[in-house]
């Protein structure tokens, strides 16, 4: 990457964060009622003295431009405000919830990509046969399934009827007495259903894409050449088709991470998974707006970071991109 390209990339990121912070700022002012009450996270009965204090701290009696400047300054110094409900800085609340969300999203991402590539390739190779129809039909249905409902149905089947896996939470309540290995195993057990729920919907999307990609690649000349030189179908699939066909799927999957972090919100709500999404649900229920605004900002930055990371990985995997 040239210096100019890096510079324009960094500028793009700064502009994006600026726009997101501005959306936050505008929303608080567009909300019905007093912005001080919105920031204080209270509705109805309000303490005038407390509101005056909030007004002074956020400079709400100043012109909008000054207010916006003050808010952006706070964002730039990573000051995300204070949750008056939970009596803790928003930054701390978010920091302790980041780990579980990353664990859930990353697991779901791997499940969806792996499953999508495998099932999509299977359907593509058996184009028009029964197994293709079955996979395509399943993908169509999964794609139209509400994520949170799918999670509940998995709980119904695997936790309530079969009693194989825990229905909610991050670890068992007795986990304090577990050794490190037993603790990790317990988290893994709790992770299964949420990760599968979040991953399955995206798996359907990637499987459809992979299927189309395999069918397209199968018609290429180099596949005919491979066949002509006497390679077995298995060797052609492994050596020539899979790699080329999965590239567009991986590119697309990288772009979907943002939507996946959004999807994690409902999944964490269903499974009481103690991540950022569950924090959003609690903040919505208790109308804790500083937490909501801070979460929106942090989750957006998370998406930007992941996009940057997938782009870098992509350049390593596919050297043709680095040249361009």
């Amino acid at each position: 990457m040239s210096l100019a390209a890096i510079f324009s990339r960094v500028a793009g990121i700064v502009i994006t964060i600026f726009v997101i912070a501005t959306i936050n700022f505008v929303l608080v002012r567009a909300a019905p009622g007093d912005p001080a009450a919105v920031i204080a996270g209270q509705s109805g009965a309000t303490d005038e003295k407390f509101l005056a204090q909030v007004r002074a701290e956020y400079g709400l009696d100043q012109p909008y431009v000054v207010q916006l400047g003050a808010y952006l300054g706070k964002v730039a110094t990573l000051d995300l405000g204070y949750s008056y409900r939970l009596r803790r800085p928003v930054k701390d609340l978010i920091a302790e919830r980041l780990g579980p969300t990353l664990l859930l999203t990353l697991s779901a991402f791997l499940i969806s990509l792996l499953g999508g590539v495998v099932f999509g390739a299977l359907a593509g190779v058996r184009h028009g046969k029964i197994s293709d129809l079955a996979i395509s039909l399943l993908a169509l249905i999964l794609y139209a399934t509400p994520v949170f409902w799918f999670g509940l149905m998995l709980v119904l089947l695997f936790s309530i009827k079969l009693e194989w896996l825990p229905a909610f939470g991050y670890v068992d309540m007795r986990a304090g007495s577990f050794g490190p290995f037993a603790y990790a195993l317990d988290v893994l057990k709790h992770l299964c259903l949420p990760a599968l729920t979040l991953g399955a919907i995206y798996m359907a999307m990637y499987a459809r894409l992979m299927r189309a990609s395999v069918i397209e690649v199968a018609a290429e000349d180099y596949i005919k050449t491979a066949r002509a030189k006497g390679l077995t179908e298995g060797a052609i699939l492994r050596g020539h088709m899979l790699r080329n066909a999965s590239l567009p799927v991986i590119t697309f999957a990288g772009l979907q991470v943002g939507a996946m972090i959004g999807g994690a919100v409902v999944v964490e709500t269903v499974f009481s998974w103690p991540g950022l999404g569950r924090l959003i649900f609690d903040a919505v229920t208790s109308r804790d707006y500083p937490v909501l605004l801070g979460l929106f900002l942090v989750m957006s930055i998370l998406v930007i970071a992941v996009n940057l990371l997938t782009d870098l990985i992509h350049r390593l995997v596919d050297p043709r991109l680095a040249v361009r």
């Binding site: 997101i20 929303l27 608080v28 959004g262 919100v265 979460l295 998406v303």
Partner: peptide, 24 residues
């Protein structure tokens, strides 16, 4: 195009939650 890209980066379900929650 830049504007579209920014909106595609934002996790859209989270933005929808924020909008509905704050605007009641």
């Amino acid at each position: 195009v830049r504007f579209i890209e920014i909106f595609q980066t934002i996790p859209n379900f989270v933005l929808a939650i924020l909008l509905v929650a704050i605007l009641t």
